[in-house]
Amino acid sequence: MPRDLLQATSLKRSFHEGGRELHVLRGIDINVQRGQMVAILGASGSGKSTLLHLLGGFERPTACSVIFDGRNIYDLPGGKLDHYRNQHVGFVFQFYHLLPELTALENVMIAAMIRRGPLSWLAGQGATRQRALALLERVGLRERTRHRPAKLSGGERQRVAIARALMNQPDVLLADEPTGNLDRNTGANILQLLTELHDEGQTMVIVTHDEHVAARAESRGSVRRLVDGQLDGL
């Protein structure tokens, strides 16, 4: 039995809004094994992104914990939690969230720069640059490395975002509606890229409301549906 890389049991998250308690996640059980692709399907506003944020260490659950590699990430001190987000998790957003002042190459490299001081950076700058270039080549953007996000199409921006998420060789890639802001063809290309990465052994959790994405994931992993704050297996 392979060991769970990421695990949450009875995960709950609620918000106070307008003087009442809003229970978004009512007890989520989820296990992600190394090399697995998990798709979470849910309607808009069902709490998919909140679940992904909890798994990614962005915000604390109301109850229960998120276990990564045997340790509760929310028991980690602040600096270690930042380290978890930087080294163990790669995040792909629906709206790409690239930094507009940086070129495509710099946007990819910044993930590696964050945890390094000037001396460490100077020592490993060449290797980091080579890896960033290799990743951009891998996502088909070798010729667009010096372009800023404003000069890239939506699909290209999402490819840069995927390259950035992979920069630190994360244990798990968390993708929040990665095709949600793209047209059908471009979305299909991005999905193809993600499946190729999965084939190469990348563990990933994708949340989506798109049945096509779920169908693609179903053939190579598990698909879970998020309804009323709880997950059902399909």
């Binding site: 990614g56 962005f58 602040g78 600096g79 930042d82 380290h83 987000r85 930087n86 080294q87 995040f91 957003f93 969230h97 690239l98 930094l99 507009p100 910044i110 993930a111 964050i114 945890r115 950035r164 630190n168």
Partner: peptide
């Protein structure tokens, strides 16, 4: 603000 969120999301500390 959003860039700060991105930086925090990819591992930048609040101190950083």
């Amino acid at each position: 603000t959003r860039d700060i969120g991105v930086l925090r999301a990819i591992g930048a500390s609040s101190y950083g």
